[in-house]
């Protein structure tokens, strides 16, 4: 569904991405792990069009997205759940959701959305800033879903969440993959990654250096951890 080919670029003076190539197929959770600073967040920002001057190619079901501004990337069918959730603090939950809805969502009308994320229903009138971390995370996911994405990008969604909420999150991501969404998950939390991912990719120094199915990853975890993940 989503394909990245040789994505390179970065910020002024720092070429963070050194040719990232990966695929996020429909109906699967693809997880990207790696140490801090290897370019995981930057990869997602590059896909979204939030990183100027990116080289390489991003395609969605064969349609080239590279070089498009963020709003056109989103309209092409990419939902973005950024690092730190970034809910609008001074908008209500309902307004946060409306920002993503240029028209009423076809795939995620309110009944379906609140069946998936029940906690949000009672919080509709509350401000984004008044939510707990877990609720903010679910809101950030809901807000991306109502844009009717074919691909969902998530940047460290488990950060700062209690273990029980992380389990809830895992269930939500599995459900989404079950609906046919291509989920691309960037994570540090191996527990979440192993619980939800179909494939696990490891990034180091701005490239994908290793790729394995979830089962294969579990078998080789010690070696992988030692080589690419320990500081």
């Amino acid at each position: 569904m989503l394909a990245l080919r040789g994505l390179a670029g970065g910020y002024r003076g720092a070429r963070v991405l050194q040719g990232v190539t990966l695929d996020a197929p429909a109906g699967q959770v693809t997880a990207v792990i790696g140490r801090n600073g290897v370019g995981k967040t930057t990869t997602l920002r590059a896909v979204m069009g939030l990183l100027p001057g990116v080289e390489g190619e991003v395609t969605l079901a064969g349609e080239r997205l590279t070089g498009r501004p963020p709003h056109l990337v989103a309209r092409a069918g990419i939902g973005y759940v950024p690092e730190g959730r970034q809910v609008f603090p001074d908008l209500t939950v309902e307004e946060n959701l409306r920002v993503g809805q240029r028209r009423p969502s076809r795939q995620w009308p309110p009944e379906r959305l609140f069946a998936l994320l029940p906690n949000l229903r009672e919080r509709l009138r509350n401000l984004g800033r008044a939510l707990s971390g877990g609720e903010q995370q679910m809101l950030a996911i809901a807000r991306a879903l109502v844009t009717d994405p074919r691909v969902l990008l998530l940047d460290e969604p488990s950060q700062g969440l209690a273990p029980m909420v992380v389990r809830e999150l895992a269930a939500v991501l599995r459900r989404l993959a079950g609906e046919g969404v291509a989920v691309l998950l960037v994570e540090q939390n191996l527990r979440l990654t192993e619980a939800v991912a179909d494939r696990i990719l490891i990034m180091a120094k701005g490239q994908v250096v290793h790729e394995a199915s979830a089962a294969a990853f579990a078998a080789e975890e010690e070696a992988v951890r030692h080589r690419w993940l320990t500081m």
């Binding site: 501004p69 709003h71 973005y80 970034q86 609008f88 001074d90 409306r98």
Partner: peptide, 25 residues
């Protein structure tokens, strides 16, 4: 209005407003 909603959203986080499919420009 929707324009007003987007004005308030963009004043809080313009990049995120755009990443949800809205033409902030």
């Amino acid at each position: 209005t929707r324009l007003g909603l987007l004005m308030r959203a963009a004043s809080q986080n313009a990049a995120m407003t755009a990443a949800l499919g809205n033409d902030v420009a």
